[in-house]
Computed example of a mutant assay.
Amino acid sequence: SSPTHITSMVVMILIGSTCFSLVFQSMDGSRWIEHMLSGIPGGPVGFLIFVNIFIFLLAFFLDFFEIAFIVIPMLAPVAS
């Protein structure tokens, strides 16, 4: 596990997450996510509670980089 192996794994994760994000956005994934999350009871507060619990559960499996590059671009349009 040399530093080059770790760095290359991080770069590959970033490349993969960017590809996923581009495909997801090109297939109107943000509109699907917005439609799905707009029906959460509680309005904006319910949305924030759901997102916090969702990110908390994802943190068991993903690092900050994966969450930041995959999940945040999907949730940012809905939050605005």
Score class of each variant (00 low, 15 high):
11 V>P: 01
32 W>R: 13
3 P>T: 05
76 A>K: 11
5 H>A: 12
73 P>Q: 08
53 I>M: 14
80 S>C: 15
75 L>N: 00
24 F>Q: 01
3 P>W: 03
50 F>L: 00
11 V>S: 06
41 P>S: 01
79 A>T: 11
61 F>P: 14
71 V>S: 01
22 L>I: 12
62 L>N: 01
70 I>R: 04
72 I>H: 02
54 F>P: 03
22 L>G: 11
15 I>K: 12
27 M>I: 14
55 I>C: 01
44 P>W: 05
12 M>T: 10
10 V>I: 12
40 I>F: 07
2 S>L: 10
17 S>D: 10
71 V>I: 04
24 F>A: 02
15 I>P: 14
64 F>C: 13
41 P>C: 02
1 S>D: 09
2 S>E: 13
15 I>V: 12
79 A>G: 05
59 A>Q: 14
23 V>K: 05
4 T>L: 15
4 T>S: 13
13 I>Q: 15
66 E>Y: 03
42 G>F: 02
77 P>Y: 07
43 G>P: 00
12 M>Q: 12
16 G>C: 03
6 I>S: 09
58 L>I: 02
17 S>M: 12
14 L>D: 09
38 S>Q: 09
26 S>W: 09
54 F>R: 03
9 M>K: 11
7 T>V: 13
66 E>G: 04
50 F>Y: 00
33 I>A: 00
28 D>G: 06
73 P>M: 07
27 M>K: 06
29 G>A: 02
53 I>E: 14
8 S>P: 15
51 V>A: 11
65 F>N: 13
39 G>S: 06
33 I>P: 00
26 S>A: 15
4 T>K: 13
52 N>V: 07
56 F>A: 06
62 L>S: 00
17 S>C: 12
40 I>V: 06
64 F>V: 12
12 M>H: 12
20 F>S: 11
60 F>G: 07
7 T>H: 14
11 V>K: 08
12 M>F: 08
43 G>I: 00
69 F>V: 07
37 L>A: 00
55 I>P: 02
56 F>L: 08
6 I>V: 05
9 M>G: 09
80 S>F: 15
46 G>L: 03
